[in-house]
């Protein structure tokens, strides 16, 4: 079967691509659109480094033939910041040293974002469950959980650590 034209609402904009049957959503993001924030850590659905939001829900983009999600909404790490202004989850990851090598970070932040969009006041346990598909080999997860909880507090009006520092 020939390639097909696929339309996505990608980070808020209508985008089109020509996809082969074997093109995954991850391939499309990285190779066609140059959005390389989503990573290929395993291509097995096991590491979560390719996590993006599909119609608002976190998915492993490495396992999705892109032609099957024609017409869907896709949000990636590149769509979070407003120009140079980081969004609160990103800023909390910076403030709480939740990154080391950074390879897991985009997927981790997308999973955390999806959680906070659905549950603005998660428990620590809910944070752990939300990121259980995102492998981080560097940090040991603790600073990541702290960062997600801090971002949640920020959404409820508590300033981020960096904001305090600036005062």
């Amino acid at each position: 079967m020939p390639s097909r034209i696929v339309t996505l609402k990608l980070n808020g904009a209508e985008r089109e691509l020509i996809a082969r049957p074997s093109t995954t959503l991850l391939d499309a993001l990285r190779e066609t659109f140059g959005l390389t924030g989503a990573k290929r850590g395993c291509a097995q659905g096991g590491c979560g480094s390719c996590t993006v939001l599909l119609d608002g829900r976190p998915v492993v983009s490495c396992l999705i033939p892109v032609v099957t999600v024609d017409g869907s909404t896709v949000d990636t790490i590149e769509g979070l910041a407003d120009g140079d202004r980081l969004d609160d989850v990103q800023q909390a990851f910076v403030d709480h040293f939740a990154t080391q090598c950074g390879f897991c970070t985009p997927g981790m932040i997308m999973s955390a974002t999806a959680l906070l969009d659905r549950k603005p006041d998660p428990t620590r346990q809910e944070v752990t469950e939300a990121i259980c598909g995102n492998v981080c080999r560097c940090t040991g997860y603790e600073p990541i959980i702290t960062a997600v909880l801090a971002a949640a507090e920020h959404r409820r009006g508590v300033p981020l650590a960096s904001a305090e520092a600036e005062v």
Partner: peptide
Amino acid sequence: SAVQRSDARGHVTGRTVFFEDMS
């Protein structure tokens, strides 16, 4: 003291370029 990592902004925005991000 706690000093911010120089690479953190790149990591959280997805702009850090790993080798496979070269096209």
